[in-house]
Write a protein that binds this DNA or RNA. Sequence first.
DNA 1: TAGATTGTTAATCGATTAACAATC
DNA 2: TAGATTGTTAATCGATTAACAATC
Lengths: 214, 214
Amino acid sequence: METKQISKAVIKRLPRYYRYLGELMEDNVERISSNELSKKMHTTASQIRQDLNNFGGFGQQGYGYNVHYLYTEIGKILGLDTIHPMIILGAGNLGQALANYVDFEKRGFKLVGIFDVNPVLEGIAVRGLEIQMLSELPFFLKENNVEIAILTLPKNKAKEMADILVENGIKAIWNFAHLDLETPDDVIVENVHLSESLMTLSYNLSKYRQEHVE
Amino acid sequence: METKQISKAVIKRLPRYYRYLGELMEDNVERISSNELSKKMHTTASQIRQDLNNFGGFGQQGYGYNVHYLYTEIGKILGLDTIHPMIILGAGNLGQALANYVDFEKRGFKLVGIFDVNPVLEGIAVRGLEIQMLSELPFFLKENNVEIAILTLPKNKAKEMADILVENGIKAIWNFAHLDLETPDDVIVENVHLSESLMTLSYNLSKYRQEHVE
DNA sequence: TAGATTGTTAATCGATTAACAATC
DNA sequence: TAGATTGTTAATCGATTAACAATC
């Protein structure tokens, strides 16, 4: 089944809509118009309507959007209505931080394994899971249903492990390593390049200084 | 001084150029053409030349770009040639993980303070810095030169602290909290919304499944 | 019904790619 | 010099915004 191609820009905005709708629900707001929402989100009503209409007509003329309904629908679109078993490769500071993110489990992202190379870490429990050695990974992948692998290993190790993940049929990698993974087309890679984000901040700061101090 | 407006898309790509050029330097590559680089980076030579020419003519006809020179110049553009004193607000898992990121210090991002609300953490050393109480933050900001504040606090606390940061003249916030900070125009906010990144991955996974399994 | 607001088409704006003259 | 490759202008493509008929 081939679905209509939806632009990356739209997809990147969906989680933000989801977040705002969640907040509206917390505030017991029942319905909202694209215009009101656009003001809250500092965007245009037109963009909101265009974005949502990629997925269906969730609103009603003269009424707007039902907050709860829209929240649920966007949740479905984002795949938050199913459980996603995840493993973490790299039990360093970042790996452990991600393991302890409560929000993820709430949204269906369920941690089922955590791995590292460092023998010192073996057996230490993180969020109720004992850290395993990366050498056990291929066996683990064959025995367990894993959807998403989180890569928080150093560059070289990350590259090596990505190959093993692909060989064992993993189709989604959340990559925190400072490299672009070379994976087949059917493997989904979502990168979080923290240092690049910090450099962007640094750029904006420098530019601001140049424009205002001199 | 008003500089020509450079699009966000271009700026977001700069750190990636910087990373690739760094790798080329490690491999002792002296010069590279936009065409070669475009193949490595899976982009177009045209885009590379356009991007770079926003900042100046770094190349030479018939020769290409000198890797070391271009690396240095992009570093300067990104503000990596100066020291940026940073503080971390929130000494939880993520805060500590970021504190221990070796790469940051290498690029001039120098951690000078780490804060939390939890009294249990007070005085515990992270990367040689004792965790301080957030109540001491305003005083600390008055006494010390701080450029960047890293926010790894929960939502509510983050909102509150952002106001204190702004009041005390902080001009750059690296925000990991799950909210959009409402700050004055002259405050630069760079968001890292991890859960939104994970949802994007989840969306792509769901879409892939729909297109291929059914 | 009248007013509000969507869904959707058309217009505009911006970003990417192509092309090529300039020049090393 | 001839070949290579940039810097830059022009063409294309895509995304955002505006407008408005449809309809609740």
